Simulated scan of single mutants.
Amino acid sequence: MATVISKPILINGKEIKNRILMPPLVCFNWADDDGFQTVDRQRHYGLRAEGGTGLIIIEAAAVSKEGRLATSQLGIWKDEHIPQFAKIAQKCHQEGTKVILQIVHAGMKSVGDKVLVPSPIEENNTKDNSTQYIPMTLEDIEKVKEDFINGAIRAKKAGLDGVEIHGAHSYLLNQFTSPLINKRDDLYGGSMENRFRLPLEIVSAIRIACGQDFIIGYRFGVNDPTFVEDKYLAQELEKAGVDILNVSNGIGIKNLDVPKDFPFSFITYMGVEIRKAVNIPVACVFGIRVPKEAEYLLENDLIDMVAVGRALLADPNWTNKAIKGEDVNLCYHCKPRCKYSVDGHTCPWFKTLNF
């Protein structure tokens, strides 16, 4: 039973077999303090590949130990991390699924006693009064760029199809692009062009280092005071070499008017609107749990790919079931937060996985 979900799409010349994307969903407490998995990610992502998902974005991997968003986060800051991702790539490719790795530096949200930030920050923006927040020098910025580049090179060596650069959710690159956080007065702050400089330089450098056939995605945080600036950044990312935008929330947007008849969240709407500004595929996300919701977005040509997150945690076979018209396991949207954000084994559906 063919549906609009099953229609292939090209991303940088690589055919993705359908329009369902698994966004990066960090499984906290599934890795040790040195960035190595303690729970088998080949099995975790392999189940979603077996379930038909077209493109999988592996959860955020830290490009440096000092830039981790959690002590139990996967790492890609040294060559010894490569094998754990190579196993994921091998399994996903066996199922005809393309797979890329999200790479991140958490900036002011990093764990540790001393944390690098774009510029001095106000107390109400800090996560912990005991943490020392250190404004980045130009040398620090160069080091971060190298860390992102090296992380992408390691992803390529692992056999992955590409990387997604994390520029949303108030992490470092999002902090640089946002005038609410970035108060620098040099070439990386102030004007819109200066605030956008770091992510654009990283994209351009990864394209050179990893070649033309390597997918570069960007987790795009709609985060500026005006949507006009967001659209400009999206266009500049496309020019720099980004192949797909995965649109989510960022910092401080207050003035986005969502039409009353739009049936999904404002985060989903942001993806729909950003798509109008670029000529590369765009994915939208947030709270899409059942196939009819993905079908609506695709059938009405509102988006290129639909990112199905928690629903794919609840049902690894979500994509195949959606294509066949079968009922899916319905995510319970556990409160106060998804069980996978603490330990996936406590998800109500986990016991069905034979993990």
Rank of each mutant, 00 (worst) to 15 (best):
A31S: 13
R68K: 14
S178E: 04
D33W: 10
G51C: 11
A209R: 05
Y133P: 09
K87T: 01
G309V: 03
Q42M: 12
M1S: 09
S265G: 15
K339A: 14
T131H: 10
D230F: 02
Y171P: 02
V258M: 08
L25W: 03
I206P: 02
S72P: 14
C334V: 12
A61I: 00
F262Q: 06
V282M: 11
K260P: 08
N329K: 07
V63G: 04
E15I: 01
G287H: 13
I202L: 00
L116W: 15
I165N: 05
K78R: 13
G151Q: 06
L198R: 09
I134F: 07
G159A: 06
I58W: 01
N129V: 03
D230A: 04
E273T: 15
P291W: 04
I181K: 00
G252H: 14
V115L: 09
K260R: 12
G250M: 10
A277Y: 11
G162F: 01
K351D: 12
F264K: 14
A283H: 08
D79C: 01
R68L: 02
D185F: 04
A311R: 08
E236A: 15
A152E: 05
I267T: 11
G96M: 08
A168S: 11
G51I: 07
A240N: 11
C334W: 08
H345M: 10
N317G: 12
V282N: 01
C210I: 14
K321D: 07
I274P: 15
S341V: 13
L180S: 13
V203I: 08
E66Y: 14
R154C: 02
K260D: 14
R337D: 07
N300A: 05
T126P: 01
L245R: 15
H333N: 14
W77Q: 05
K276M: 04
R43T: 09
T268D: 00
R19M: 02
V203L: 04
A311C: 10
C210G: 05
D230W: 02
R43D: 00
I251K: 04
E50T: 13
I303E: 03
K254T: 10
D224K: 15
I288W: 03
Q37K: 06
G211H: 12
L313E: 06
K324S: 15
I274V: 10
R289N: 07
E238G: 08
A60D: 09
A322D: 15
E95R: 07
S204D: 02
L237S: 11
T226E: 02
V203A: 04
R154T: 00
L138V: 08
E299S: 13
H333P: 12
